[in-house]
């Protein structure tokens, strides 16, 4: 998958979990919890959706790499491999 495809998939899951967010307004460096207002339940729902979509385990130890859109795309690109 290209980074753009991953981005589109990620934003689809994100807006499913948080239907009140406008995907176009989510900046690369906005922090999900502090800037976008996702709470721990929203975040877990997002991680669950990504797990289901990509088949990745996403352990809790990796949560610190899923702080912003740019970081999450780096993480998913790396985990999904070339």
């Amino acid at each position: 998958m290209t980074r753009n495809e991953i981005r589109a998939a990620f934003l689809a899951d994100m807006t499913e979990v948080a239907p009140d967010l406008d995907p176009a307004a989510i900046g690369e460096t906005d922090r999900f919890q502090d800037d976008l207002g996702l709470d721990s339940m929203d975040f877990l729902n997002l991680v669950s959706a990504l797990h289901k979509r990509f088949g990745l385990p996403i352990p809790e130890a990796d949560y610190s790499r899923l702080v912003t859109l740019a970081m999450a795309l780096d993480y998913l690109e790396e985990a999904l491999g070339p």
Binding site: M41, H51, P59, E60
Partner: peptide, 17 residues
């Protein structure tokens, strides 16, 4: 909680809440 969640996929993890 951390020990339990380490054995689970995200959809089955628990939150402290």
């Amino acid at each position: 909680l951390a020990a339990l969640n380490a054995t689970r996929t995200p959809d089955r993890r628990l939150l402290m809440g």
